[in-house]
Design a protein around this nucleic acid. Structure first.
Length: 804
DNA sequence: AGCACGCCGACT
DNA sequence: GTCGGCGTGCTC
């Protein structure tokens, strides 16, 4: 009987996806704990890899064969048992590797860096000889794949002969930020004596002595330098003379140190109070109930969130709040910080790796009780959770689009059950899945139907672009919209213009009648494939030539649809030479903090028009904006995706909410080629309920979620044939294991069939109840390891956001 | 991922 | 006859 550590090694393959047993060296016996990262020897060459201890147990058999843990990477566990358990579930439900899941839960800096070092064994080969193969400058750190095949084989031979050795090293990237702290050693009465001993012109030193003698509190070196306008040289002299002590201390990189304004809870209206009471009761009862908080824009959802969190805190519990990864993240963060100040830790992609690491450590050390962040914040190492909130729960950014392809909502549900705490999903336009669940009382529906200040919703006008084009308007701006912009410029009110960029690439539409070519079998828009010069349906594989004239009205103006923000900006500037235009898209916001800068500029009314992509649709709140224009409502609508109506409705509803606050009535223009489409029509009146009914009916007809579950399997390969072949093989293996109720779409090429020189083929399975599916897919994935050698990558996405 | 083993072709 | 190609299996 001997203690053995079960370790998940950092080798993301199917065959190494279960724990390996390692002996625990005597000197680590009392140190090692579950959840720590370790360095272990692995494989034939005993190369060093990072691993996670997931279990420590007594083992009796074959222990002499086991290798030893090399070293510990942490002094305390980085993962608690809850998160280790969660990682198991996550790997299983998302069909991904355990390591990948474990690493996803941790800040990036916990990902080990590996390096390889060449060493000559016992002078068996001269340095010159080795340098002839590989320059000595790279002996300390080289990458095998950067070497030529000749170099590789020569080094490999030398190694086999035992003349050289390759030392593998695991480097921990997790570094804490250290700063110098200064502590005075002088008392007031020493000042005159020391000053007397100094030269008269030693101005800086005199300043320093004066300061030290009169300030007993500790101060950081940088702020002391700034305060007295001195340099580190002066401080070092002070240290040498014994006037002060300099100490290295750990410091958190605080990304939001400027936010200080404290806010107080607002009085709730009846609906808000009711929602708060219902959720609070479940906090008290430790009920893992999921709530759907459906509230129109401006109905005060945020205040309900904040008071719910406050309630959890009074009960000695903690809270997680997720916000979508979009422009308004900083806004929401500052509101939460404003209420709970130092208790809040923030985790989102705008932070540097170091900052994320520090926030993560604050949570881990129980220094923060409230976590606000984007998708991955759902893995925050917070304990004793009292409530989890997901704001704008319908947002697609909650689903990760690479492995592990998890949905934060599902993880939240898992944790809510673990901690027996309520989960609140909030949205003005809930996802159909969530709304349907509340219909069946799986979730409890809470409604906030009234806007807090009783402001009317803005007037929404739908502009029929077919007519406008016929009347001679240009592609992007209709006459009514231009007039509206002009009128705002004249009275110095601001406008927001949104250009929908989603799916810019792929479909063809008639400019005269708005006709979009659809698949005769699937009723989904056909996608333009420039490589094959054809229109394809990627659901069923139907293919036809690119039409030269519109099948509906025989116009020749049927063409590829899409525009860029930059081009629109130029056109706009041409039309309104005096207007100050701010552009906000991926190009102008690439730099850190660029988002905030643009929004601040606009908020300070240093621009008249904000032109942007979807990122401006959400949550922005500028009182002087009285006009919102959606330039092209259709791009999202005509995407070959069953969720396109839902997306369009959500987007239009949200962007409409941006116009007109307080005393100024807002106006919204939606330019569309599909003025009669129900998503457009119902967004006009912000009628979510009717949209929900209508869309549910359509999903029911088409056998789509939420009536059916979906699973997407994709194969990628350099050669189209190989990818297709693999998918047919998968189909053949899978089909016999499914019931006749399951619907299999495909195999079909993806709409953008070739990305990064790889071809993608997929099948989508729609099903209601398939007990064998999970096991069958897991098996296919395991077997796919042999194909991996041939360069075939298989990936599985349970409940994909779209089939694209 | 990376290393060893093992089985076929072009060479001293 | 052997050196070395890379297909295949395995890693506690």
């Amino acid at each position: 009987m001997i203690q053995v550590a079960k370790v998940i090694v950092d080798v993301p393959t199917m065959q190494t996806n279960s724990p390996y047993s390692y002996l625990i060296p005597k000197q680590l016996e009392n140190e090692i704990q579950i959840g720590m990262r370790v360095v272990v020897p692995f494989g034939n060459g005993n190369r060093k890899v990072q691993g996670f201890v997931v279990k420590i147990e007594m083992e009796t058999i074959n222990t002499e064969k086991l290798k030893k843990i090399e070293s510990l990477m942490d002094l305390e566990p980085v993962l608690n048992t809850e998160l280790i358990q969660l990682s198991s579930w996550l790997a299983d439900t998302t069909f991904s590797f355990r390591v990948t899941c474990l690493l996803t839960m941790l800040p990036n800096v916990m990902r080990a860096k590996y390096s390889k070092q060449l060493k000559i064994v016992n002078d068996q080969i001269s340095k010159q000889q080795l340098a002839a193969i590989l320059p000595s400058t790279s002996w300390d750190n080289f990458e095998t794949d950067e070497l030529s095949t000749l170099q590789q084989s020569e080094l490999s031979n030398l190694r086999k002969q035992g003349k050289i050795e390759i030392v593998y090293r695991v480097k921990n990237q997790a570094q804490t930020k250290k700063i110098f702290q200064i502590e005075s050693r002088l008392s007031v009465d020493q000042e005159t004596k020391i000053l007397a001993s100094l030269r008269k012109n030693a101005i800086k030193l005199r300043q320093l002595v004066h300061y030290l003698a009169n300030h007993a509190t500790k101060i950081t070196q940088t702020s002391l330098e700034n305060k007295l306008n001195i340099t580190s040289a002066t401080i070092k002299i002070g240290e040498a003379k014994g006037w002060l002590i300099r100490q290295k201390v750990e410091q958190y990189r605080d990304p939001y140190k400027d936010v200080k304004k404290q806010t107080l809870p607002l009085t709730l209206n009846q609906d808000q109070q009711h929602a708060l009471d219902e959720i609070s009761q479940n906090i008290d009862k430790s009920q893992p109930q999921t709530f759907l908080l459906e509230g129109v824009t401006g109905s005060g959802k945020t205040e309900v969130y904040l008071q719910t969190i406050a309630y959890a805190l009074t009960k000695g519990k903690t809270a997680i709040m997720l916000v979508p990864e979009i422009a308004l993240t900083p806004l929401m963060v500052s509101r939460v910080k404003g209420r709970f100040s130092k208790k809040v830790a923030v985790l989102h992609s705008g932070l540097s790796d170091g900052e994320k690491f520090d926030e993560w450590r604050r949570i881990k050390r129980h220094e923060a009780q409230v976590v606000v962040g984007a998708r991955s914040a759902i893995f925050a190492p917070i304990e004793n959770v009292g409530v989890i909130i997901i704001d704008e729960e319908h947002e697609t950014s909650y689903k990760q689009d690479d492995s592990p392809r998890y949905h934060a909502r599902n993880v939240a549900q898992w944790r809510s059950e673990f901690y027996k705490c309520p989960l609140v999903l909030g949205s003005a336009t809930p996802s159909l899945e969530s709304r349907a669940r509340s219909e069946r009382n799986v979730y409890q529906l809470l409604r906030l139907p009234k806007r807090i200040n009783g402001h009317p919703l803005p007037k929404v006008k739908i502009v029929d672009m077919r007519e406008e084009l016929q009347a001679g308007a240009d592609q992007n701006f209709s006459q009514p919209l231009l007039e509206a912009i002009d009128s705002r410029l004249k009275i110095s009110q601001q406008s927001i213009l949104m250009l929908n960029r989603r799916g810019y690439s792929s479909f063809i539409m008639c400019r005269d009648c708005g006709f979009v070519l659809k698949c005769p079998n699937c009723d989904i828009s056909l996608t333009l494939h420039m490589d094959s010069h054809s229109m394809k349906c990627h659901y069923c594989g139907h293919e036809e030539p690119i039409p030269k004239q519109c099948p509906n009205c025989h116009s020749r103006k049927i063409r590829y649809y899409g525009t860029g923000t930059e081009k629109v900006e130029q056109e706009l500037q041409l039309k309104f030479p005096k207007a100050r235009i701010l552009r906000m898209d991926v190009d102008t916001t690439r730099r850190k903090g660029a988002h905030e800068k643009i929004l601040r500029q606009f908020g300070e009314q240093r621009a008249d028009i904000l032109l942007g992509t979807q990122m401006i649709a959400k949550g922005l709140d500028f009182p002087n904006v009285t006009l919102v224009g959606v330039l092209n409502a259709d791009t999202a609508l005509e995407l070959p995706d069953f969720r396109s109506s839902e997306r369009t409705f959500q987007l239009l509803t949200q962007v409409s909410g941006r116009a007109g606050r307080a005393d100024k009535l807002g106006e919204v223009f939606i330019q569309t080629f599909n003025p009669d489409h129900y998503a457009v029509q119902l967004a006009k009146t912000q009628n979510y309920e009717n949209f929900f009914r209508k869309e549910m009916y359509i999903r029911h007809q088409g056998k789509y979620p939420p009536y059916y579950y979906t699973l997407q399997i994709t194969a990628a390969h350099k050669e189209e044939k190989m990818a297709a072949k693999k998918m047919y093989a998968v189909l053949n293996e899978l089909q016999p294991k499914l019931s006749s109720q399951a619907i299999i779409l495909g195999p079909t090429p993806k709409p953008i069939a070739r990305v990064k020189n790889k071809y993608y083929y997929q099948i989508v399975i729609k099903y209601k109840n398939e007990p064998n599916l999970h096991a069958a897919v897991t098996k296919i994935l395991q077997e796919s390891q042999s194909d991996y050698r041939q360069g075939i990558q298989l990936s599985i996405d349970a409940e994909p956001q779209s089939f694209m």
